[in-house]
Simulated assay, not measured.
Amino acid sequence: MKKYTLILAVFFMAFSVNGQDLDAFFNKADAFLKANVSNGLVAYKKIHDNPEALYNLLNLAEGIAVDKTDAKNYQAFWINAYNLSVIKGIIENYPTNSPLANAGFFDKVKHNIGGKNITLNDIEHKLLRAQFNDARFHFVLVCGAIGCPPLISEAYLPSTLNKLMDTQTKKALNGDFLMVNIKKKRVEVSQIMEWYKEDFTMNGTTEIDFINKYRTEKIPANFKIKYFEYNWQLNKQ
């Protein structure tokens, strides 16, 4: 009996410590983003000149483990981890004009996060998209370019996750993520919707169905879809 009691005590102690680390990560990420992001643009030079806060934050994230069954904590953790790792990748190659100017930025360079040694693509495609059928990820994972939806100046928290994902999706689809041409009965949208078409057409819906779910001024179902070229220039202040 004493043996099992000890095992349980160790388990709950580890759970408590990990929970404290996760809360600390969210708090520090929130403070970091508030200090370095404005109107969707990132102060890369400022961070490059004084990177300690970012490195300390990502060092904390190395030992945090969140199970995917704890969906809100898991998604919030990995969304923040992705966005912060993008910033880290940029400042390690600073000055640079685009994330694509750095070989393997998304698919080769590894990041030590959550007990894993993974790429940015691993976070996006394996840990998030493959686990949850939610196209809103494309509006909160920010790749360091102007063509991405804007990075917000706060951390995604489990308590605000769903609201912020909705807000960012609505901002994009009611903003410059798409352009409507009434005369030509056409809507031009970001290439994100071409690259990940399967995410926007799940369960038999169309891309326009998805857009209209979040858009104030609805687009007629018979409008054609065209994709405009992605802007890979750095989202810098």
Rank of each mutant, 00 (worst) to 15 (best):
I47K: 00
N117S: 13
D176I: 14
L120W: 00
A71C: 06
L54R: 01
E217N: 15
D23L: 13
F105S: 00
I208T: 04
K226C: 08
N203S: 12
V189E: 08
Q233I: 01
K163Y: 12
F177Y: 11
K126Q: 15
F200C: 05
F137G: 06
M179Q: 15
N112A: 15
I208Q: 04
E198D: 15
D21C: 10
K3N: 13
N102M: 09
I90V: 15
K68W: 09
I91T: 01
N102Q: 14
L60F: 07
S85A: 08
D67K: 14
I182T: 15
N93T: 01
F26L: 10
K224E: 14
F15T: 09
T96S: 07
L100F: 01
M165W: 05
D107Y: 05
T216Y: 08
V109W: 04
T216A: 14
L120I: 06
V180M: 08
A103D: 13
I208C: 01
L41P: 00
V109T: 15
C148V: 02
N27M: 11
F77Q: 00
K171I: 11
H125D: 12
R186L: 14
C143L: 03
K185L: 05
Y4E: 13
V189F: 03
K171P: 03
E217T: 15
R129A: 05
T201W: 10
T69F: 11
K218Q: 13
M1E: 15
